[in-house]
């Protein structure tokens, strides 16, 4: 564990790949830096860290960090991560997925990874929209918000991914903010340390599409709005129109968008169980 105030995270960047392709003001880079600081703080051996991404703006970030990195297919980061972790349990496996990536096309994989309680730390970056493809509605777009495919406002309600994942069996569930990077770093540290499936929803911003379509300003304004609207666990929200996952301001007047660690339990972890079974089975019966 590294306790010095200053995290030497730049050592983990693939400098020849920088700068990354994300838009000006996109919050994802803040989250990536927090993740790198968390890895540094934990003192994880660089060779023993694997970072898996799906498809989308968030997943694209795995290409910029100098670990064993796997940029997979849309929605499928977690099955790849599951295979990796089961095959080599000593690896620290992180998955970075987006909201559409993780909750729409990859929703099934997400809940099953949670159910299995495999020791993977999953960061789901929620910017309430499909960014890479041009700003289409996501399962996290709040009702009535405008996107390229909901020009008159979204009709469907959105997911609260933390509640979903807790119900699915994730043994560590947390929500962090790109606008609170120090807290976020601490949450990621806890997520990695947790034995089992750790799920962190991180609220991020897409000024290019979500901000523009809904007149929420550029990066700084969206970041500041996060801070204004979201508070620590149990703080009520006055105006949740902006906050992804909280659409109906009238209906949620007494509901808090919580952030911090929302759920934690100790449950048997899958890769450990599998390898215990193997250890007990080797040499048994006819092969």
């Amino acid at each position: 564990m590294n306790t010095a105030a200053r995290a030497d995270y730049r050592r983990y960047l693939r400098l020849d790949m920088m700068p990354h392709i994300l838009c000006p003001g996109c919050g994802h880079g803040i989250v990536l830096q927090a993740m790198l600081r968390a890895i540094w703080r934990l003192g994880l051996p660089q060779d023993q860290v694997a970072v898996v991404g799906g498809i989308g703006c968030s997943s694209r970030m795995v290409g910029y960090v100098d670990f064993c990195t796997l940029h997979t297919t849309h929605g499928r980061a977690l099955p790849f991560a599951t295979g990796l972790k089961l095959a080599r349990p000593e690896l620290t496996v992180l998955a970075i997925v987006g909201d559409g990536d993780g909750l729409a096309i990859g929703g099934n994989h997400l809940i099953h990874a949670a159910r299995r309680n495999i020791d993977v730390t999953c960061l789901l970056l929620n910017n309430a929209i499909y960014g890479m493809t041009g700003g289409q509605v996501a399962p996290t777009t709040p009702t009535e918000m405008v996107s390229a495919t909901t020009p008159g406002g979204a009709l469907e309600p959105s997911f609260d991914s933390c509640k979903l994942l807790e119900a699915a069996g994730a043994s560590f569930v947390a929500r962090g903010l790109s606008s609170a990077p120090i807290d976020l770093e601490a949450l990621i540290v806890q997520g990695i340390q947790h034995q089992g499936f750790s799920f962190l929803e991180v609220l991020s911003d897409c000024p290019t599409y979500y901000g523009r379509y809904n007149r929420l300003g550029e990066g700084p304004e969206m970041l500041q709005a996060q801070r204004r609207h979201v508070d620590w666990v149990a703080a009520p929200l006055a105006d949740k129109a902006f906050v992804p996952g909280f659409a109906d301001t009238a209906a949620v007047a007494d509901v808090a968008l919580q952030y911090g660690v929302l759920h934690r339990e100790t449950r048997p972890e899958l890769s450990e169980q599998v390898h215990r079974l193997i250890a007990a089975s080797v040499g048994e019966g006819p092969t």
Binding site: P19, L22, G25, G29, I30, Q33, S178, S179, P181
Partner: peptide, 10 residues
């Protein structure tokens, strides 16, 4: 530095 999404300030 903490809020720079592009790792451009140290």
């Amino acid at each position: 530095e903490l809020l720079c999404p592009d790792f451009a300030i140290v």
